[in-house]
Amino acid sequence: MPSITFYNGTSLLKKIEATKGRTILATAKQGRVALRHKCGGKASCLTCKVTIPNQSAVSAPEPKEARKLGESNLEKGLRLSCQTRVYGDIEAVIPEDPYKARIRALLEQARQE
């Protein structure tokens, strides 16, 4: 049975056993890993992005996903978790929430002043 190891940046979040052929988003929900999403897996909101450094054990991007993300993002390992199916052990890096990142940057700037 494949597994997904979720990271938030470099911090390990959780390792979850996945059903072969299931999406990363569905597996994250099952394992209670907080992964932002809004559209219910239809590839329209683009909020469920993850970075997958080694994509040898996941499905190839469908045309809809490739069109939404663009070739340069796909080359960097960025994928939509709602569209990416797992067939072996993988690592998925969840990006920092943009609002939290902005707040963190503002707090850091205030501390330096």
Rank of each mutant, 00 (worst) to 15 (best):
A18C: 13
E62V: 12
G88T: 02
S44E: 09
L35R: 04
G77R: 02
A43T: 04
A92P: 02
M1A: 12
K14I: 02
A26Y: 06
A57N: 14
K38P: 01
Q112F: 10
A34N: 14
H37Q: 12
I16C: 08
P2M: 14
R102M: 13
L78H: 11
I4L: 05
E96G: 11
P63Q: 01
Q112C: 06
D97N: 03
I94S: 02
R111A: 15
K76F: 08
A57D: 01
R102C: 08
E65S: 02
R32E: 05
Q112R: 11
T19Q: 14
L13E: 04
K64Q: 13
Y99P: 13
L46M: 15
G77Q: 06
V33I: 05
I94P: 00
E65H: 02
A28W: 00
Y99T: 12
Y7V: 08
L80M: 14
G70Q: 05
A34D: 10
C39D: 10
E96F: 12
A26M: 04
G40R: 08
T23D: 02
L78W: 07
P61A: 10
I52L: 02
P95V: 09
T5C: 07
L106Q: 08
G88I: 06
R36Y: 10
Q83F: 03
T10A: 06
R36E: 14
L13I: 15
E71L: 04
K49L: 06
L69R: 00
A92W: 00
L106P: 09
G41M: 03
R79F: 07
L46A: 11
V33L: 02
K20V: 13
R85E: 14
A57C: 10
V93F: 07
R85L: 11
S3F: 09
A57Q: 09
I52R: 01
L46H: 02
A92V: 05
E62M: 04
K20I: 15
E62R: 15
P95M: 07
E113A: 08
I16T: 05
P98G: 04
S59D: 03
L46T: 07
K76L: 15
E113V: 12
R102G: 13
C82D: 02
I24V: 05
A60N: 15
Q112A: 09
L46Y: 00
E91S: 09
S44C: 02
R104G: 03
L107A: 11
G88S: 04
L74V: 01
P95F: 03
K38V: 04
S81M: 05
C82K: 01
Q55T: 06
E91I: 00
L25H: 11
E71D: 15
E71M: 12
L12K: 09
A34H: 12
E108L: 11
L107H: 14
